[in-house]
Design a binder for these strands. Structure first.
Length: 189
DNA sequence: AGGATGATGGACT
DNA sequence: GTCCATCATCCTA
């Protein structure tokens, strides 16, 4: 029975994040469709989490994370890349889940055209946004609205989930809130 | 295979 | 001015 993703995201992010693995991220931009299977996510828990953008409360940049679960939070990273999160938890908590990586299911030609520089298409939050065509303009849109150009849809969950420390942060390293989908055939490091 | 580094913008001290 | 929820490229092996 398919999980209700919107309901799932209403819960705490460290619980919702691993269950997001296998779900699909669909972008329909410039009449081009890309469909991705989510394989790599990280949970961030707002004011309880010094590594979260929302740790110090709501600002103009992170406002989308304080909206209803399923709201897309896009921020510019290192001045160059965009990274995508979904808001999670009750409205006002600032909880969220960073989408770090996925597998292209549909639209690989479009993805290769958007990501000219590397063979690594979608294994990183900046790369994933470039592949899907996600820009800062999509910040604040709702992932479960059928009219949104970026949507989240149910997909088969992975058999195996790895839990590791989060990437690229210096605070709260002890929280193993990165979740990676693995298959029995593949060993990941 | 793996380490160093430059690009570049926004938030914070 | 300093610190980043990054990535591609340029080194050394």
């Amino acid at each position: 029975m398919p999980a209700d993703l919107a309901e799932l995201l209403a819960g705490p992010p460290e619980v919702a994040a691993p269950r997001l693995l296998g779900a699909h991220l669909v972008s329909e931009i410039d009449t081009k469709t890309v469909r991705l299977r989510i394989t790599d996510v990280e949970a961030y828990k707002g004011s309880d989490d010094p590594a979260s953008h929302a740790f110090r409360g709501r600002t103009e940049r992170n406002a989308a994370m304080f909206e209803r679960p399923g709201t897309l939070y896009v921020y510019r990273s290192y001045g160059i890349h965009n990274c995508a999160n979904t808001a999670a938890g009750p409205v006002g908590t600032g909880w969220g889940i960073l989408i770090r990586g996925g597998e292209v299911i549909e639209g690989e030609g479009v993805v290769r055209a958007r990501r000219r520089r590397s063979d690594e298409l979608t294994n990183g939050p900046g790369k994933l946004c470039e592949a899907l065509g996600i820009s800062i303009d999509h910040n604040g849109s709702y992932l479960f609205d059928s009219t949104s150009s970026i949507r989240m849809e149910w997909g088969e969950p992975p058999e195996i989930i790895l839990s590791t420390p989060r990437v690229g942060i210096s605070k709260a390293r002890e929280r193993p809130w990165r979740f990676i989908a693995a298959s029995a055939a593949t060993s990941m490091g």
